[in-house]
Amino acid sequence: MNLENSKIKAPFTVPEGYFPGLEERLLSGVKISVLSELRRPAVPEGYFDTLEEQLLSTTRLAPLNGTPGTPEGYFDALEEQILSRVKIDGLKRPAVEKGYFEGLEDRIMAEARLQDLPQASVPAGYFDTLEKDILATTTGARKEKFTLFRNIKVMRSAAAVAVIGLVAYGLSWNNPAPKDELAGISSDAMIAYLREQPLMEEDLNFVLEGNEVFLTSEVSDKEITSYLLENGINI
């Protein structure tokens, strides 16, 4: 089909009497448009040229004056509004015990410090056996350095050991073939054992029974010291 050789018209029509009415309506439309422009109030010549600068100057000066405009009666109602909001806010806040806030800061800080402490983990049941382990270690293996002149209790203990030693020596001298069950225990083991045992009065009585003569003999510190050194006891 050759479109350009066959002149086809457009099928569009308009309502009857449309164009005469259109002209009138268009004139009315234009008049309304003109009137709406006329409604704009007249301004002095060059008004809009300086308006922007004037507005900027005003906004710059306003904070300097410190008196920005507020609606009439604004501050009268402001206090009341704030108080109302404070009351409402107070109602929202839960009650606390009297004096709760005193010392609260310290309590929080203490709690925070506790939580900050490093917490090392330990094997299960560690603390149940800890005491026993410590005792076993300290009493079984550790030898405390004997300081004769610093501790009177130790000195007394040493004296007691010396007495016991003498007694033992005496007994062995009088009875060269001991028959008791402790005969197999060495003197060092015995001394170590006795050093760590509280020596009660009845124990002494038991040991010295029949050997009271030793209690009456005076033994000086010098003699005790020299005896201990001779027997290899470190003081």
Partner: peptide, 15 residues
């Protein structure tokens, strides 16, 4: 009814 079209088939086809 207010479309205001009055054309034959070829006119409508052209549109």
């Amino acid at each position: 009814s207010d479309t205001y079209l009055d054309g034959d088939e070829i006119q409508m086809k052209l549109q």
